[in-house]
Every structure is written in structure tokens, then in C-alpha cells.
């Protein structure tokens, strides 16, 4: 951790420390949240949430100070399987580089991991990183080409021909894509060196910019020894796009969770207003620090790097 701090400090990144308790979160229907209650004798009670990532605060800071920042923060994700690769409370290293895009972030991450790796780190974790687009991976390992499967009917037909009958006719493009990706592609991804899988399908909605003239987004994920360890966006700054994302994803999240009585976090309706023409171009990387450490030590279980892992308590 100290080596990473030194590396980032020397390159002009400012270390920040933002709250773990937040009155609102970015709506992300696929991440379940922890909620807790703030009780004040004078101000009454209010629901607060444990952050699943420090993104919400760090993006506000970038808009204010317009420089590259990072932090190690405790993050919380509920309803994930407690076990070798997941602990509901974990440490994330998140670094945002201004005037930088997703491409340049690959080189930054490559140098960061290469320079700060622990002695004896397995070579499968060290540079050079192999780069591949999601569609190249799908074509190579899954025998399907996303460029020609943008229509949901065609994607379902392809899924059927590959042995995955889709029974639910309301299944989204994203879900059918992930069904094929997880079954046919991910298990075959090369593991001899770190792999950057870039250009994710635009249908997987997130706050990463669209890649103009393509069906993809400026987003990549880093896999090492088959484990996802980092996720990067070329950060969306268009106010209207962010507003639309908030509106649609909050509606989706609320409709999915209300019948199941799951936590529906509040959202800040004015979050999009932090962006706009003066907001700097930036690229953010969220790196699972515990997973990185686990792999650098040649381990296959987070229990080797997290003290008092939840798996020891509840399993």
C-alpha cells in the first residue's frame, strides 16, 4: 500500500479521504447496498448508506480541483457470495487521472502494478498486459461476433444455436450477452499474463463514455489469473447523459427491489449538475486492492490478506 501511495504521489496524484457513510448513492441496480440509520436528537432520523465505491465523492472533488486524485477506501457490497473472492467489506484503490482517457489508463495501471509488485509476485500478474476487445474475445473464444448481433432477436437466435435456449422472452440484451460471455468466453480467457478486456458493449449501461461510431463503451476490465481486479471508465461528463442514466437506473433499481423489500438508496437528483463543459476529461480506475494483494502473494483466497474475513464468522 505504501509503495502504491509513493508511486501515485510522485506522479502528482493527490490522496483524498472521503466518507464511507453517504446520504445518497449512484443508482446501480446490480449492486446491493447496506443501509444504516443516523439518529440525531435534534434533527431527527435519516437513512445513510455504506458506499459501494468512493466514485460519488471523488467525482465531485475532481470537478472542484481539476486534478488527479486517488484513495484507498473501504467499500461495502451486500448480497455477494461471501467466500474466497468476495468479502462484503473490502478495500478499493480508486484513482482518477485528469486529461487522460481509458487507453492511457491501461499504461498507467501497467506501470503501477509492475513497479509496486511485491517480491516473488507471480509473473501472470506482471506487465506486459495483453489487450483484447470484448468482441475479439467473443469471436475468438465464443465463436460469435457482437458487431452482427446488435438486434436482440439475432442475439437470442445465436444463443439458441450455441446451446442456450432463452426461455424468458423479456430477457435483456445484456443478460443474454452475459450468459454467452460467462459460459463460453470468460472460462477460456488467457491467463498467462494480465488481460485488459476493453470496449464493453454499450448495452451494459454505466457512466463510461460511448465510443463514437461503434456499439461499445470506453470501459475496460483487468483480469489476472482469471480474476477481475480492476475496472476503468473514460468518465462520462455529459450532464444530460448522466441525468438520463440516474433517472432510468433509479427507476429500474426501485422497481426491482421494492417487491423484495431490499434497500433502495436515495439518489442526489442534482448529481449531474457537478458536470458540464468545465468538467475535466478524466479516466477512473477502481482496483480491488485485497484481490491484487492476494494474487501478488500467490494465494487464491482473500482470507489470506483480509484480517477477520466474514467467511470465518458466518460460514
Amino acid at each position: 500500500m505504501q509503495a502504491i501511495r509513493t508511486w501515485l504521489n510522485e506522479r502528482g496524484y493527490l490522496e483524498v479521504s472521503t466518507p464511507t457513510l453517504s446520504p445518497d448513492l449512484i443508482p446501480e441496480p446490480t449492486i446491493q447496498n447496506f443501509s444504516t440509520r443516523l439518529i440525531s436528537e435534534f434533527l431527527g432520523e435519516r437513512e445513510f448508506y455504506l458506499i459501494p465505491s468512493p466514485e460519488i465523492h471523488m467525482k465531485k472533488i475532481i470537478g472542484e480541483i481539476r486534478r488527479s486524485i486517488y484513495q484507498f477506501s473501504r467499500c461495502f457490497r451486500n448480497s455477494e457470495q461471501v467466500g474466497s473472492l468476495h468479502n462484503p467489506e473490502f478495500t478499493m484503490l480508486e484513482y482518477y487521472t485528469v486529461d487522460c482517457d481509458d487507453e492511457s489508463s491501461i499504461a498507467i495501471t501497467e506501470e503501477l502494478i509492475g513497479t509496486t509488485a511485491l517480491p516473488g509476485c507471480p509473473k501472470e500478474l506482471l506487465p506486459p498486459f495483453k489487450r483484447m476487445t470484448v468482441n475479439e474475445a467473443c469471436s475468438t473464444y465464443g465463436n460469435f461476433d457482437l458487431d452482427h448481433l446488435q438486434d436482440i432477436g439475432k442475439l437470442r437466435e445465436k444463443a439458441r444455436s450455441l446451446g442456450f435456449p432463452i426461455e424468458d422472452h423479456t430477457e435483456s440484451w445484456e443478460a443474454t450477452f452475459n450468459r454467452l460471455f460467462l459460459n463460453l468466453v470468460e472460462p477460456r480467457l488467457p491467463q498467462a499474463c494480465p488481460l485488459v478486456l476493453c470496449d464493453y458493449p454499450m448495452q451494459i449501461e454505466c457512466l463510461a463514455k460511448r465510443k463514437a461510431g461503434t456499439f461499445y463503451r470506453r470501459r475496460w476490465e483487468l483480469y489476472a489469473k482469471g480474476v477481475e481486479i480492476a475496472n476503468c471508465y473514460d468518465e462520462e461528463t455529459d450532464v444530460q447523459v448522466i441525468k438520463d442514466y440516474y433517472r432510468r437506473h433509479y427507476a429500474m433499481l426501485a422497481s426491482q427491489r421494492a417487491p423484495l423489500h431490499q434497500v433502495i438508496p436515495d439518489v442526489d437528483e442534482h448529481f449531474a449538475d457537478y458536470f458540464g463543459s468545465s468538467y475535466p476529461q478524466s479516466s477512473g480506475v477502481a482496483l480491488g486492492f485485497d484481490r491484487l494483494l492476494m494474487l501478488e502473494l500467490g494465494l487464491d483466497n482473500l482470507g489470506g490478506v483480509i484480517l477477520f474475513p466474514l467467511s470465518d464468522i458466518i460460514l
Binding site: T30, L85, N178, L182, E186, I204, E221
Partner: peptide, 29 residues
């Protein structure tokens, strides 16, 4: 059995199944 949430995607479960009579293993997500 492992639950997987592909980055920003729907919830999946990855299963390893074994046939006790033949020892054959199947992986299904």
C-alpha cells in the same frame, strides 16, 4: 456454487455439477 455479478451486469450463478455414477463434471453458468 459461486454467485457472479459480471461487471455492471445481471446476477448469475456459476455451478460445478458432478455425476456420482460416472464422475463426469459439468460447469454451467
Amino acid at each position: 456454487r459461486e454467485f457472479v455479478n459480471p461487471g455492471k451486469g445481471s446476477a448469475f450463478v456459476r455451478l460445478k455439477l458432478k455425476s456420482p455414477s460416472t464422475g463426469q463434471t459439468l460447469r454451467e453458468t
